[in-house]
Design a protein around this nucleic acid. Structure first.
Lengths: 351, 351
DNA sequence: AGGTAGTGTGGGAGCGCTCCCACAAGTGAT
DNA sequence: ATCACTTGTGGGAGCGCTCCCACACTACCT
């Protein structure tokens, strides 16, 4: 608090007013030029731009934010501890997409971790202060209060992976249904007839959609529905082991398994090996995520790839639109904004 | 730009003025309470705090920034592409330290990548706009213009790893000299007598200091200086190979090598193996950084660990001090602010 | 009684912008 | 010549805060 007057009369940064004086125009005109308004004559624009260059003028963000009630910043909120963030390529890819899409914008990206309760507290404060124009929410759990907080604060937000079919927030998702279908169709084309599915946590919407895709692919191929081939997992390796053991016991004749995640597939693989089933000879295996695990598995795992980087880009697109027509989310009614991106089956030796 | 008037008369966020009215005091008094000034009577303070709570008042950051000429935000600038950031645990550890030290502050941390030219451009704009109160600079190269830009803009900054002994910016470093000494002393205590050193890039200050530590440790142990035991490397694996080959050729009797980085040590190890030297039986090996490489090497590599997380904390401490007594860096004269943290030798099977 | 501090408080001025109204000047129809 | 637009421009008002000066009030000295 000591020396408030550090901004010396002379050494201080130039203001709009000074630029205006220099260019021999009014304050409003300079503002228009700065903000790219078309209602400025070419001559005036040139004069102003010259003055800006000469003075090295840079707009004062705080003043702009105060007057215009916007911050030109958006936050990428990661409700996870830093560690996970660094260890999962998901985030790195996402960040790359987000960054690239943002790079021809004036928007600034803030990275905010909210893993601990303390950090969440701070985040809530931060959002309440409206220090960002919008929020990108990745990897939210079903019971997370954050989305509702954002709605309540009327802060534009985009969520990656809708929480349900009736998600109210704008969302970006990969085509879980289509991804599952392509995995199953692939197995069918390889001549497999008894294809099992180890699901993800069924309280996760995406996991549901994968089950739907699995079911429909089989049905459309003329297979009779057989729920004994479906066993619930939870995205974990242990869950994969458990489910695989159960499946083998229940349907010893399975000749293929579609797992809802690579990690789950890894668990399943382990049990298959123990029971003497060869992959892919006896049982073909397909995972989901195309993670490092898939590439390094023995044999390498066929897996469904999600276009994470592209999803990041799509999230920014949606968010910028939301911000542009800054209608409170609640009043938007049914016209929900969402994007669903195609997945890609990466074929490897496991199938 | 369409609807500026989104802040409705009633639904808008409460202002200082409204809190003041509610508490029956003046604007200045509320400001004092908010900012924790001691010159407020207990009764008044209580009344104001009640009003704040009732109204759910949250200060408007933009207004505060404009009036007080500060942003309450600092940036962690990473002059690397995202990829490196995610793959090196260095950054993750650093971030952890920084985050924890910042968590009982009002300061907000921004993570800014400046790997590409384009991103650097944006960063320069960002800094010129003084959108942060201070900057943490990690992993700067010797010829990076960023530090000078910061000095010129009079933005408080702390650099990790000073560029030279006369670094003008505040800096945090690990004790390269002491780390090198401990490595050499360790080798001496293991009975090694012909200890070689593969240096880092000698235009990096820290690498110089490691050479100094190596030299002094030997001298203090009564060994005659022998520069043939020193070979220049460049922190890379290839450099390590090259240097090791040269050393073996020049001094076939070496019985220990202290490498300036784990990666360099990995290169050296490769050549030692090729030449039939056993580690540690024939030649002991010590690296620097205690990275994943060290743990996974065969045999596991003894290495000097730097307290990265602690360094992050120290950087924040320094930066906050710099910001607090916001005297332009130039006027600080000789009283340079710097911290040097102790290293730790992690002993493994390679020595 | 008259000083001389110190303590708590109110509110003016001003931070640098954006928004918008007012208005001048030009253009073309009537 | 008049009216009605359109286009470009200047500048007032106001965003919500912090800083600081002014002032009232107390307390304790001369």
């Amino acid at each position: 608090m000591a020396s408030h007057g550090a901004r010396g009369r002379s050494g201080g940064r130039p203001t709009l007013e000074e630029v205006a004086a220099r260019a021999g125009v009014g304050r409003g005109t300079v503002s228009r030029v700065i903000n790219g308004s078309p209602r400025v004559s070419d001559a005036t624009r040139a004069a102003v731009e010259a003055a800006v260059a000469e003075l090295g003028y840079v707009p004062n963000t705080a003043a702009r934010a105060l007057a215009a009630n916007r911050t030109d910043a958006i936050a990428l909120v990661v409700p996870e501890p830093e560690t996970r963030f660094f260890n999962e390529p998901y985030f790195s890819d996402m960040l790359k997409g987000v960054g690239s899409e943002l790079s021809d914008t004036e928007m600034q990206l803030l990275l905010i971790f909210a893993g601990s309760d303390r950090e969440r507290q701070r985040l809530a404060q931060y959002l309440a202060a409206h220090r960002v124009d919008g929020v990108l929410l990745v990897s939210v759990h079903a019971d997370d209060p954050l989305p509702d907080l954002l709605t309540q604060l009327e802060i534009p937000a985009v969520i990656s992976g809708p929480r349900s079919a009736t998600e109210t927030l704008a969302s970006v998702d990969s085509d879980n249904y289509g991804g599952a279908r392509s995995a199953v169709e692939h197995l069918l084309s390889r001549g497999r007839g008894r294809i099992a599915h180890i699901t993800g946590r069924l309280d996760v919407y995406g996991a549901q959609r994968r089950v739907d895709g699995y079911r429909d692919a089989l049905r459309d191929a003329g297979h009779a529905a057989d729920d004994r081939l479906i066993e619930a997992g939870d995205f974990t390796e242990e869950g994969g082991r458990r489910a695989m053991a159960e499946l083998l016991h229940r349907c010893p004749d399975v000749d293929a398994v579609f797992a809802a995640s690579d990690v789950t597939a890894a668990g399943a693989r382990q049990v298959l090996r123990e029971k003497g089933r060869r992959i892919p000879d006896d049982v073909a295996l397909v995972g989901y995520d195309d993670s490092a695990i898939a590439r390094h598995m023995d044999p390498p795992l066929t897996s469904v790839r999600q276009p994470i980087e592209e999803m990041g880009r799509a999230m920014i697109d949606l968010l910028l639109t939301e911000i542009a027509d800054r209608r409170p989310a609640a009043s938007r009614g049914l016209e929900r904004h969402q994007a669903v991106l195609a997945t890609e089956l990466v074929e490897r030796a496991s199938s």
